[in-house]
Design a protein around this nucleic acid. Structure first.
Lengths: 140, 140
DNA sequence: TGGGACCATATGGGCGTCAATGGGAGGAGG
DNA sequence: CCTCCTCCCATTGACGCCCATATGGTCCCA
């Protein structure tokens, strides 16, 4: 499997670390991704994580709209101002920073959610509710 | 027979496994399906299972709209975030995870229901009731 | 037509491996 | 000098892989 799929919830330890699910790590390996680019999702209280190509894709999207529009301004603020590079430790864990906690509401557990070409970090309950809402055709 | 038809109910063992009916396994074999894609049904409390082509069908749906639109985001949350890949063990059994239990209400027994190009997992009583309702032209 | 051998499926359980988690020590930076 | 982070090792619990047993049905032959 070369895509990020399904979801899993892991615990944050006393040092603020959390294990990335093994299936996601293997996808990162297949794609040769060593540096992780993280940014806030545009619609949901979640952090999106992918390789540097994720940043490229968002920049192309920004470039495709009127650069002086409020929309482009807003996207740039999130993509450039809110983006962070991270690395995994030897065991495949990442640090849950305040940047992540504040935006998602994550405190003790993290739900990893596959999104095909990237994955996301969610507060577990927020994910369940958003998914239930999505299934009914709503947003949240 | 190269399609999933009829239904059967099997027991979950102490380790949380359940045998997929032999007739379904032979269809999987004929179609060359080794990896199972599982997703929550959109209308019923059931898990749909098929080959990777099942995922392809949903992804084409997503691809038909602007990939950066909230609508695409919402569908991806369900299809990618809610979908799971599974494999059968050597005896043709699959693990009944909490993901499946929570959504379907399954606890000790699973009803396998053929749906032509895929099949579904149901809580036995829920299936009987849904089928009775469908027979009368209702939904649930 | 009845009995018995045979076979396939469903089910139960042992065991090894790996992932998730917890904690310690050393090093860099404030 | 103290704190935070990175690298390293230990533990444990879950899952995958393997083999064993039961149960029900079918086919063959007397």
């Amino acid at each position: 499997m070369n895509r990020f799929l399904s979801n899993a919830t892991n615990r944050i330890d006393a040092k603020g670390r959390v294990s990335v699910p093994a299936s996601f790590r293997s996808v990162l390996g297949e794609r040769g991704i060593r540096e992780l680019y993280c940014l806030q999702d545009f619609n949901y209280p979640a952090i999106s994580i992918g390789g540097p190509d994720l940043l490229d894709r968002y920049e192309r999207q920004i470039a495709s709209v009127d650069p002086f529009s409020p929309e482009a301004n807003r996207m740039s603020l999130l993509v450039h101002g809110g983006g962070v590079f991270m690395r995994l430790d030897a065991e495949g864990r990442l640090m849950v920073t305040d940047f992540i906690r504040d935006f998602t509401g994550i405190s003790t557990e993290v739900t990893f959610v596959g999104r095909s070409d990237h994955f996301q970090l969610w507060q577990p309950r927020a994910f369940q509710e958003a998914q239930a809402a999505a299934r009914e055709g709503r947003f949240g």
